[in-house]
Amino acid sequence: MTSPSSLRPPFTRDTATAKVRAAEDAWNSRDPGRVSLAYSEDSTWRNRDEFVQGREAIRALLTRKWEKEQDYRLMKDLWAFDGNRIAVRYQYEYRAADGGWWRAYGNELWEFDAEGLMRRREASINDLAITEAERKFHWPLGEPRPAEPAVVLCIA
């Protein structure tokens, strides 16, 4: 398995794609400690309406997130890359505390330091209530998605 920090800028299509997949796999683990290691100690984030700085703040945000977003499954897709930046589009599904299902759609802009750690992340996210029957992501919870997904990222 490739370490996220072993994939360093400047990115090629292959290394940018691998960086996105490594991030997706880490986020699907729902392990805030594991995920936070991909970010620099002073990384800055914009996540919805939260602005955080530093690995510890990121770890705390992710802990809160996954306490609220149960049965979380995520797919990320490379949108564009250049030098030390990557743009990603993604979707994830989760079950809220009230039992209702949601699909979140978003875009992320990533900027990396020379060591391959993300120093800046800006995420724009929109949520859509869905029924359980409308769910698309069904692989085992906490596992990376299958190499050949049964679904493709789409608008609706």
Rank of each mutant, 00 (worst) to 15 (best):
E108H: 04
A26S: 12
W45H: 12
C154H: 14
R8V: 10
D98W: 04
D127N: 15
T17V: 02
E69W: 06
F81V: 02
R8I: 08
L153P: 04
T12H: 02
T17I: 00
E41P: 01
E24M: 10
R85M: 12
G100C: 11
R21G: 01
W79N: 12
A60P: 05
H138L: 14
R120F: 13
A97K: 13
G106M: 09
L117Q: 15
D127T: 06
S43T: 10
D31H: 02
R103G: 01
R64V: 03
A114D: 15
A23C: 06
V20E: 00
E111V: 08
D127G: 09
A38Q: 10
R120I: 05
E50W: 10
T44S: 14
W101H: 12
Y90F: 15
S36D: 03
R119P: 01
R103Y: 02
P10Y: 02
N126R: 11
R46I: 09
A87F: 04
S40G: 13
G54W: 00
V152Y: 02
P32C: 07
R119A: 04
T63L: 10
R64G: 06
S3T: 09
Y94Q: 04
S43L: 04
R8C: 06
S29P: 02
A129R: 15
F112P: 00
F137S: 00
L117V: 09
V152R: 08
P144D: 01
P140Y: 05
R46P: 00
V20D: 00
F112L: 10
L141Y: 10
E93Q: 15
T63H: 11
V52G: 04
I125K: 06
S5H: 11
A80L: 14
N28P: 01
P9M: 00
I86F: 02
R89D: 11
A97N: 12
A123E: 11
E93H: 11
H138S: 14
D113Y: 08
R121C: 03
P146Q: 06
S124E: 11
M118H: 05
R48C: 05
A123F: 06
G83T: 06
L61K: 10
L7S: 01
T15G: 00
L128Q: 15
R95G: 07
W27Q: 04
L74K: 05
W27T: 05
D31Q: 05
A104R: 04
R64Q: 07
